[in-house]
Design a protein around this nucleic acid. Sequence first.
DNA 1: ACCATAACAGAATGAGTATTCTGTTATTTT
DNA 2: AAAATAACAGAATACTCATTCTGTTATGGT
Lengths: 199, 199
Amino acid sequence: MSILLLMVRTRTFDPATALTHAVELFASKGYSETSMEDIVKATGVSRYGLYGTFGNKRELFEQALDRYADSMGKQAFLRLLEPEASLDHIRRIFEGRVDDMCCEGATKGCLFIHTAMELAPRDDDLKDVLQKFMRRMSKLFSIGLESAKEKGEVRKDLDVTAAGELLTSTMFGLVVLGRTGFDRKTLNNIVENTLRAMR
Amino acid sequence: MSILLLMVRTRTFDPATALTHAVELFASKGYSETSMEDIVKATGVSRYGLYGTFGNKRELFEQALDRYADSMGKQAFLRLLEPEASLDHIRRIFEGRVDDMCCEGATKGCLFIHTAMELAPRDDDLKDVLQKFMRRMSKLFSIGLESAKEKGEVRKDLDVTAAGELLTSTMFGLVVLGRTGFDRKTLNNIVENTLRAMR
DNA sequence: ACCATAACAGAATGAGTATTCTGTTATTTT
DNA sequence: AAAATAACAGAATACTCATTCTGTTATGGT
């Protein structure tokens, strides 16, 4: 008889989809403004389930941050690793983000910015995790730029490391402007002018 | 006998300095994370004084935002209106911001970003106010760039309106990176590469 | 079929919050 | 000096929140 594996009643929710909902809420409203009650309602999962599966709000947030970074990577950034990555790949990443910020209820936000502004100053662990993600993001931009350089799409003397960090920074600036209601045209213009500087 | 002007006991605090403290707290921690209790402690002003003078937390925040924008303007941005404004003026504005983010306890934040992320999505009035400030900021950058263009410091075909918006966006990106612990060198590098694109 | 117990729903707890209320103090006017 | 009352300090209120507790339900092992 196995004690550890005993599970007399099966779980009625999928932790992965629950986490997806949590990511959406946190990305939209940030940490403090998202209550566990909000998450209970959005996921349909009981407090018991949430606490049992994710620990507490802080730990749930950290897992949401992991997931967020992961899905951002898979959705868009990892394609920058392919040798055929071009400036257009980078442009599309930005345009996708602009669309997120401008269309419909524009409820999408940015978990990275929320973490940086709300939590990083008082939670060193989270700050380190966040910094790691941002460095990775910058690195992926750099790699994409290097491929673009080989294609002759960006100037030969471009410091791709510095440019990658600049693009990461631009990404956040865009979101902040998007949240305050700047329109798609303005945001895409910023993207275009930023990319133009690489050529 | 004047009823309206009757003030039997003189106020023991200066609303202006109280507001300064509130600005610092809100800029550092944002709206939700700053309690009225925090402000009472930081200012030494009683609840009575705060509510009597500023209304409520929401109104106090709005006044803090006004003040913040105002002092940002006076400190740095208004100099861009002078005809002798140059690219170096713009550089210094950014470097000042980088210093704010990197030195000492790095408790300084950005009231604009906090407002955009926390409040703008659920407070249209505040969103409009914020957008107005951001447009003004972009405009001031544009004017400075125009002066720089006349000096031959930036290329003749630069769209200063678009470039002003880009610089505004860059300002926010920098703060987000600064909050997650990126060092002064990286941030100044981003500034330098952004400015270089104007030439 | 029955037991043991994990998963559940939601009530209870305790801490923190914004705001209002209360009794006190200080200052102008009479 | 006394009266009137604005400013004060801090208690009281009403609410929200994260977390824990409680009683119920469903299911795997016997």
